[in-house]
Design a protein around this nucleic acid. Sequence first.
RNA 1: GGACGCUUAGCUCAGUUGGUUAGAGCGCCUCGUUUACACCGAGGAGGUCGUAGGUUCGAACCCUACAGCGUCUACCA
Length: 947
Amino acid sequence: MESQGWCAHFLKRVAGLSRGKKVRTPPSHLIAPCRKLFFPLPYPYLYMHEMPKAYEPQQFEDDTYARWEQSGAFIPENLSDFETREPYTIVVPPPNATGTLHIGHATMLAIEDSLIRYQRMNGKRALWVPGTDHAALATQNKVEKDIFKAEGVTRHDLGRDELLRRIDAFVESKRDRIKFQFRKMGASLDWSREAFTLDAPRSLAVRTVFKKMYDDGLIYRGNRVINWCSRCASTLSDDEVESKTRTATLYFFKYDRAFPITIASTQPETKLGDTAVAVHPSDERYAAFVNKNFTVAFGGVGGAALTLRVIADHAVEKEFGTGALGVTPAHSMVDYQMSLQHDLPLAHIIGEDGRMTEAAGHEYAGLTTNEAREKVVAWLRAERLIEKEEEIEQNVPICSRCDTEIIPLPKLQWFVAVNKKFKFQQSSRHAVVGIAAGAEVTLKETMRHVVATDQISIIPERFGKTYFHWIENLRDWCISRQIWYGHRIPVWYCASCPDPIVSTDEVVVCPTCSGAVAQDPDVLDTWFSSGTWTFSTLGWPNDNGDLATYHPTDVLETGYDILACWVSRMILLTTYALGEVPFRTVYLHGLVRDADGRKMSKSIGNVIDPLDVAPKYGTDAVRLALLLGQTPGNDSRMSEEKIAGFRNFTNKLWNISRYIFSQVVGSGTYQRLITESDLTNAELTTLDKWILSRFAAVARAFSEAIEKFEFSRAGEVLRDFTWNEFADWYLEGAKVEGGKHDVLHYVLQNLLKLWHPYMPFVTEVIWQSAYARGADDFLMVASWPDYGAMALYPEAEREFERAQRVITAVRAMRSDFGVPASAVVPVTVVSPKYAPVLAEQKLVIERLGRCTLLFADAAPDGQLASVIEEGVVAIPRIEAAGSPDAAIRLATERDEVAHYIEAVRAKLSNDEFVGRAPAAVVERERAKLDEAVERLGIIDARLGRGG
RNA sequence: GGACGCUUAGCUCAGUUGGUUAGAGCGCCUCGUUUACACCGAGGAGGUCGUAGGUUCGAACCCUACAGCGUCUACCA
């Protein structure tokens, strides 16, 4: 870094910049905090000859990211010829603005950044939109908790305005953190288009969708039984409800002595609100009572006088309890559904504070449900109405935020009607196929349609089932929340006019009577706003051009755990609002667990924080560890050992480069970019043709795997090539043959390009150290290797593989028989067929096998021999203590071959196999047999000669 | 209760529409001449693909049942 030549080097690069292309100004609506600086930062990279032995990621990463960002290339309009490029869009799933980066985010970023970088290098107008989520309920809870801890006051003490001020301040103080962490991961996001689910453009989108849905009759206000959390004092959507198991006492009893049917309940206090008793339609025990009404005096003095109708309903399980169920429509989701079917009245006996209401009777009003239960049970005991008590396990719904037990209760709420017909409005640009403009459809039908017809494909496919299952069970979506942080419902009520006023703009006075209005106090479910994410981030409803260019987005990449609650909501709202799908492909990654397969959690202390390990092993290593060894939709395990393994790999790539650069005379100058035409056939050896052919094949395999979202396989293919073929064979062979300047640089230059989407930092640093033309010549915007145009040399591949087999055989024998590594052994090869091919590669074989090579018609008697496809490879015995018998290795080989021959012969002598299997398969087996028989012959001849 | 997934080498996992002598990484064992790399190189051991049936000329792969594990989901009061 401190070298003499640094300054001149830097100036040269600055000069390079001035020749660079002009940076386009981003669209005017975009704020551009990352505008390109006129002067680049001091050039941070190294001369080739200054590269340290080991790659030191922390020395380069922050600076590299800053330079990318300042180059403007994250903004697609700054890419060369951007107008003619095909758009490619991903919108990042917005993390909680107040949260911190965890391993799941790191997975998301690694995958999405790889896709974006790959597409950008492939000439796409690649846009990756960043953003954060306000996470209404979670954020408010967190702030409320903090305030209570510090000041002992609740939100009601503070009031709405003050609480919101505090929350905004909290969010403001935290929101830069997650963005900083995204940058740490190398994410090439267009920060000029950053969005927040609660900022002004998104708010407008939310209000606009709300009004449109209201006008279409898809949003309505209704008194319905909803999930109520008395601690949060709010409604919860079905998705925000979890369940836990607990043991409870199941009481078997009658409402009163005169009532003919015994029911069973774990919550006898709710029976104060019963309006029916339900039995199964085929239950003969109770058939006589069905449709009869009974009046019972339940709960003693101050209890309720109940009028109960006996109804028949399939939801009742004959085998459970007594087969008869007391129906409490106001405080049970199931019972509520039944009440709708049978037109039963609701008795609202539990209030929002979790205490019994007056409707439960004056003796009970004000008691908690537990107190009421004790009182009811005491009364039942006194009246001797209890027939039996049983301890059972049951699932109770709890609030996913605070674990408080959910109380279902009726409440006036806003809903989205998912089963109501509306006139479908088509997009003029990317119409949904199969639904005519103006067709009468429901939201549910639309949601099902676009996935069923593959206009949205889900990877892995099996999650389509989860999606359809979720749709089947979807009920009208309760979208109002009784909290203060979030998108306030855009509805105003006039004291003297009956109809609510729905408006995207602030309403000050009633448009009908000019009277005073009050806005609905509730806010929207956070998923309602995140459901608009793909199009609200692209400017809808203000048309700024982005929507036309970048929507529908290409890929939505997220964890499978939010398929139902988020992905499906985006599909719902986008198809409705735009008449377009929000994305073409949904890619679902699995959960990252710890080394023992446990979920990572702070309380267990098994969390691997990507920001802890990234400085230690390098961001590239973390990304590789997340991309390889992981398959879509399946959970994977993460450990520091795994990351360390990939750190080793980044270092390998570093050292491969270091070696190649060391081969250059006059290091410190730029390396020319080598093209196909530089590699003239005449100068290429078999070894060269082999690596070029392999590279072309690997570049294709890697690219095709990425296109198919097979990130792990792609990475493995490339890693194996880089390490096993390029480093271990080609580089070693090149040292022998010498004069490989062009091939070495050609493969390295293209290899760096292939690796760049996965490990952007180390590849860019290497590129900058040797190949960059100027300070703004980034590997990041280099074009993808044109593998289709690369020459293949299948013959050379086979020929070099023969040399490899000979070398491996020599090495194995040396190792088996304890030949000292320092000894150069004379090797005899008997291979009439392949001697010329092997002779051509004599130098490489001799050096890599540490031997001298002699071709003969027969190997000398008594030598150690190995028989390979090419023939016999033999080395002399050495006079060393404990040197095993020469025949042992051959005998082992003979056993294997003989066994194999037996198996193939059996197969080929089976007439049914020969008759029914495809000719090509049979032919392949025959060829295998011939080859094996030939080898066996050679081995036997050799063994017959005693050695 | 329903659905889905998983079960392949000591560990973590691949296995591309049924045809390989079943692979990789880590770990393990042996040996290290060679200044790109010990965050390395060479060689090696290690698996009757959960169990039992079935389909097929042929099954890790398809079907059935069972066992274990996991996830999501649900209205057993």
